[in-house]
Design a protein around this nucleic acid. Structure first.
Lengths: 234, 234
DNA sequence: TTTTGTTGATATGTTCTACATAAGGACGAT
DNA sequence: ATCGTCCTTATGTAGAACATATCAACAAAA
C-alpha cells in the first residue's frame, strides 16, 4: 500500500492550456510595450498569427483580459487598452460558499484591520455634512435590536464611515467584504452561540468623531468590535 | 454645434457580448445551485445547448472562470468547481501604468490604513522567533541609506511585519500593493522633490514591538509613515 | 489476489471555415 | 455643413472536425 501522504510529497502537475499561456504572454506584451489606456492593439488575426495559435484560443485569452477591464473592443475599430477596475476580479470571487475557510478568516481579519486603520484618514477628510448624515443613520437605529435590523444598521453605519474617507475603493471594498464578515460571524454563532455586543455603540463612535481625536476613536472602535477581536487570539 | 459636454449628459451604452452574459449566467447558476468545491459541472455541450450559444462563446466564459480559479477542467473527467484565489484577479491588474490616478491614490491610502490597523493583530500573533528574524532584518540596514537599498529594506521590514500576522492574504496583498506605493511615492518625488524621512526608524518600531503595546506601536508607525500621511490632507 | 498492460469511450483542447454585424471612411446629393 | 448610401473591415458568433488526455473495463502476468 502506497503512502497516503504521497500527494503531499510530490507536487501535482498543473496542466496549463494554451489560453493560459497566451493570456500571460499578452499581459507581458502589454507591459513590455508600455501601452497606455487608449492605445490601439493589433488585430486578432495578427496576434493569433504572431503567437501561432488559432483565433479561438487567442479570443479565450482576450476574453479574460476583457473581463478584467484591461481591454475594450468594438467591431471594426479594433481593440484598445482600457483602465481596468481594480476590484472587478475580487467582486466575482467574493463568495463565502466557495472560498476556503482560511481565506475567509483572513478576510475577516482584513476588515478588522481596515476599521482600525481608518481613523486617521477619517479625521482628515470628514465634513460637517458627513457627520450630520451619520447622525441621521444613528438616529434611525432606535431600539431596533432584532437580528435583521441590526445587520442592516451595521452596514449603513460602517458603510457611511468608509464613504466619508472619500476613497471610493475603500467603500466598494468593504461592501464586498461585509457579506463575508457576516457569514463568518453567523457561522461562529452556530457553534459558540450568539456573540456578545461591544460596549461602545454607534452613537458613542459618532460622539468620538465629533469631539475626539483619531486615537480616541480608534480605541472606541476596538471596543465596539471587541467581540470580533476575540477570534484572532490563536 | 453640439455641446461638448454631451458625453457627460448621456451615458454611453455598454455593448455586452454573449460571453459577458454567459459568464454572468454561469456565476448565478453556480451560486443558485449552491455548488461546493469539488462538485462536478455539466458538460460543455450540455451547457452550451441549455444556454443556446455556441460552444465557442461558452468556452470564452468558462475561460474567464478558469482564470479566476472558480473552475478546473480536465479532459474526459469534465469540469469541477474549485476554490478560487481571492487575489488572483487583483494580481493581474495591479500595474501602476494602466490604473488611473484616483485608483492609485486610493491604493496608496489603503496601504497606510493597513499599516495603521495592523498593530493589534500583530501583538496578538507575533512570536519570539519572529522578533529575532525582524531584528536580523533591521541589523542589515546599517548605514545603507542609498535609494535602491532603502526601498529594499522597506520591503523586507514591512513585508516581515505582514508575514508575522500569520495572515497569508495580508502578506500577498501588501506584496502587490508595494509596487504601486513606491510608484506613487516616486512620482510625487518628481514634483515636490525627495520626501522627508520619518523620525521613527525601523529599529524604533522593533523596540516598540518588544516592549510596547499596540497603541504605542501604532503611534510609532504613524510617525514612521508621516511623510506619506501628508498626502492625504485634502 | 494484486498489480500491470491494453483497449475503447468520452469530454475537453484546438483548429479551421464561414458568416453576421457594427462601425469607419469615402463619396455624392441635398 | 449635414445627411444618406455603399463599401470595407475587424470583431462577434456558429458549427464541424480532429487531437489528446483520462477514465473504466477487462485481460494478462506476478
Amino acid at each position: 500500500m502506497a503512502s497516503k501522504n504521497l500527494s503531499r510529497d510530490i507536487e501535482k502537475i498543473a496542466p496549463s492550456t494554451m489560453a493560459d499561456v497566451v493570456e500571460l504572454r499578452l499581459r507581458e506584451y502589454l507591459k513590455r510595450k508600455a501601452f497606455k489606456p487608449g492605445d490601439a492593439l493589433p488585430k486578432e488575426l495578427e496576434l493569433a498569427e504572431a503567437l501561432d495559435v488559432s483565433r479561438n484560443v487567442l479570443r479565450e485569452a482576450l476574453s479574460r483580459l476583457r473581463m478584467l477591464g484591461m481591454i475594450e473592443s468594438r467591431k471594426k475599430r479594433g481593440m484598445i487598452l482600457a483602465e481596468p477596475d481594480i476590484l472587478g476580479g475580487f467582486e466575482r470571487v467574493m463568495d463565502p460558499l466557495i472560498l476556503d475557510v482560511k481565506t475567509l478568516q483572513d478576510l475577516f481579519e482584513l476588515r478588522l484591520v481596515l476599521e482600525m486603520g481608518l481613523a486617521d484618514i477619517l479625521f482628515a477628510r470628514m465634513t460637517d455634512k458627513d457627520l450630520k448624515e451619520l447622525e441621521q443613520i444613528v438616529n434611525k437605529e432606535v431600539n431596533k435590536v432584532q437580528k435583521p435590523f441590526k445587520v442592516k444598521h451595521e452596514i449603513a453605519f460602517h458603510g457611511k464611515l468608509y464613504q466619508m474617507t472619500g476613497n471610493d475603493t475603500f467603500r466598494r471594498f468593504q461592501n464586498m467584504l461585509l457579506p463575508v464578515f457576516e457569514y463568518v460571524v453567523s457561522e461562529e454563532a452556530k457553534i459558540n452561540g450568539q456573540a456578545k455586543v461591544g460596549k461602545v455603540t454607534h452613537r458613542d463612535l459618532l460622539d468620538l468623531l465629533k469631539k475626539g481625536n483619531p486615537d480616541d476613536f480608534r480605541q472606541g472602535m476596538k471596543e465596539h468590535l471587541s467581540p470580533h477581536f476575540e477570534r484572532i487570539r490563536k
